[in-house]
């Protein structure tokens, strides 16, 4: 059993830690609110763009754009969106594990790493990293993420990789975030049984090719932007929750230690009184 003095010392140090985690919790909570608003506001754009692309499926001739061209898959690139900092619970680990599991089936893999945590893990395990994007700001704009999209498109169009997947942590709510992996390139519309839906007869202005050529790259950019926003919202949510748990755990520890310290103090006083009483008895005799 630790001494009373030792216990008092521990209480002091845990209190300091608690102050720290509480401060980090508050910071994460305010960033979380902003990041959550941003991700929710941005979702409709990507969703709409996807429905438009699905409507366009009949016109999406692979001859129009290299982004639509399917090839036999020999090598798959993954854009792995992780955080720059830790203290976010198991978020990055979960994503990496899910991604590696899926990639185990691919014949060859390469990585485009976004976020310092992912960059570190991939380097440590000697993966083939094509590009690294550390330090994405907390409130990213499309300007920040378009470079990532461009890197992915370049690798795909040059034939270096035959598919590009996007791996990120999707934001569901403050307590739930989910590792998500989906194919980004080639841009094939979602498969549907065509009998159920009559394809819309579209008029294009100026013509289908021009319109498609404009839409397709935007879709890639927006998908990457959205993935980064999802990841940011997940990051601050996970961080806020992790720090709240830490603050609560510190509180529990403090009350445990306080109880132990008080018991020790009481024991000491009882012992002292006994000694005095015994001493007095001895003098009398």
């Amino acid at each position: 059993m630790p001494s009373e003095r030792e216990l008092r010392r521990r209480i002091r140090s845990v209190k300091n830690i608690q102050q720290l985690t509480r401060a980090m919790q508050l910071v994460a909570a305010s960033k979380m609110r902003r990041a959550q608003e941003a991700v929710l506001a941005a979702r409709p754009f990507e969703a709409r763009l996807r429905t438009v692309l699905n409507d366009l499926a009949p016109y999406a001739d692979p001859e129009i754009s290299p982004l639509l061209r399917k090839r036999p898959v020999k090598k798959v690139a993954v854009i792995l969106v992780t955080t720059d900092r830790g203290l976010v619970g198991p978020m990055n680990v979960n994503l990496l594990r899910a991604t590696l599991r899926q990639m185990a089936q691919a014949p060859g893999s390469a990585w485009i790493a976004v976020g310092r945590k992912g960059i570190g893990s991939l380097r440590r395990t000697h993966q083939n990293v094509l590009a690294e994007f550390p330090g994405i700001p907390d409130r990213p704009t499309t300007g920040d993420t378009n470079a990532i999209a461009r890197a992915a498109v370049d690798e795909f169009v040059s034939g270096n990789v035959d598919e590009v997947h996007l791996a990120f942590t999707r934001f569901i709510n403050t307590l739930r975030q989910e590792p998500t992996i989906r194919r980004l390139l080639p841009l094939a519309p979602e498969e549907e049984d065509d009998d159920t839906r009559v394809p819309k007869q579209y008029i294009f202005e100026p013509d289908p090719e021009t319109v498609l050529r404009q839409i397709l790259p935007r879709l890639i950019e927006v998908a990457v932007y959205q993935a980064v926003l999802e990841s940011k919202a997940s990051q601050f949510s996970a961080q806020m929750v992790a720090m709240r748990n830490a603050t609560d755990a510190a509180g529990d520890l403090i009350s445990d230690y306080t109880l132990a310290a008080n018991k020790a103090r009481q024991g000491r006083i009882t012992k002292e009184m006994l000694e005095i009483a015994t001493g007095a008895e001895a003098l009398k005799g």
Partner: peptide, 19 residues
């Protein structure tokens, strides 16, 4: 402001996709 000039859209327009 379509890429080929301004266009007005009323209900029941035919499906159109324009830059």
């Amino acid at each position: 402001p379509g890429s080929e000039g301004y266009l007005g859209i009323l209900p029941h327009h035919a499906p159109l996709l324009t830059a």
